[in-house]
Nucleic acid binder design. Structure first.
Lengths: 200, 200
DNA sequence: GTCTATATCGAGATAGAC
DNA sequence: GTCTATCTCGATATAGAC
């Protein structure tokens, strides 16, 4: 018999606490998440939580690190897909997302207590640094292969692409509608299209 | 004798409370801002605050509305500047900003209690709807004048431009450095350059 | 490992004097 | 209009029994 994966019942308490914290951090942020709320969602008692973790910051660190790892793995899977650079970027931008929930890592950027703590902040910084570098690599590759024009700056364009994603989430939440996210993505892809070797 | 503008001392209590709330909302968000913190920053007592406002949501509404108005006025001033569409968009994107503090309106998008309240949420929604429309108008004008190619979609591009800004703030905060913001802006302007009539 | 009791403090407000 | 007193909860733990 194997345990069911993806559900919180059936795994150990420590695991349930981390997953509950991840959800709450995503929904309400660090300041808006209380130990009590975490415990209730995890179905764990006060004593349990403080047995496994030293406190809220410790638990948040475990949650943030895991969320950052997952984001990275999901993105990397997209970048390794076959196709031209533009096709891979397009696949990444258009992959299915829970747009209205926003980015679980980008969100932390607005949490003063997270950004004030170097340890909590580190995974956030690392995630975006990696993402920008990785997309720049894909674009540079496309340029070397002659898919993209020389006028396209890989590093700057990569940062723009990540910014469009993060900003797209903001606009979608503001409108309470995922359409602005899709439109922002369409807009940048259309701009990129003018830099393909045949079009440019 | 005229009063000094831009300082909190010398204006009435209600005004100081609103300005303090605006600052705290920007720095710490709605959930992270307590009535006590507002009062201390404003130099006002408990009783004073509850005399002028019914509570934290009421005060936040006044603060959010004013912040939204100011953002709109500042943006509109940029759009009315002389020059081509691209020059006006460039001026808007490159105008001086306190990048690491982020966007005081975009920030609210991550505040669950703000987004859950239709009244607090409205100014946020309106601000971005207006901004996207306004930039789309500028771009459409540039296309009509023949400054921009017909391949450029004003509405989608406008949403992309706003997303780059909002995402640029996120990346700058993640890196604790304003450089990613500038790079994201450079990237999108470079992409737009390929759509100018002479270049495209 | 988990539970319950207890403790401190701040959030968010109400009441009524001045 | 402003001040102080008071109130109720929840946030965030710690202590010690089981």
């Amino acid at each position: 018999m194997y345990r069911l994966v993806g559900t919180l019942s059936g795994v150990n308490t420590s695991e349930r606490l981390i997953e509950s914290t991840r959800e709450l951090l995503w929904e309400r942020g660090y300041v808006g998440t209380s130990p009590k709320a975490i415990q209730q969602r995890a179905g764990a008692g006060q004593g349990s939580m403080y047995h496994h973790f030293s406190g809220k910051p410790d638990l948040a660190l475990a949650a943030i690190r895991r969320t950052a790892e997952e984001l990275r793995a999901a993105a990397e899977a997209g970048f390794r897909a076959p196709g031209t650079a533009l096709q891979r970027i397009t696949a990444y931008l258009r992959r299915e997302r829970d747009v209205l929930r926003g980015c679980p890592v980008g969100r932390l950027t607005q949490d003063p207590d997270v950004m004030a703590d170097p340890v909590l902040r580190q995974p956030v910084e690392d995630t975006f640094a990696w993402l920008r570098t990785r997309i720049a690599e894909v674009l540079a590759e496309g340029r070397e292969r002659g898919e993209l024009t020389a006028a396209l700056d890989p590093a700057a364009t990569a940062t723009t692409v990540v910014a469009v994603l993060q900003g797209g989430y903001v606009l979608a939440r503001a409108a309470n509608d995922s359409a602005p996210f899709d439109q922002a993505v369409d807009g940048v892809l259309n701009l990129l299209a003018a830099h393909t070797a045949d079009a440019g």
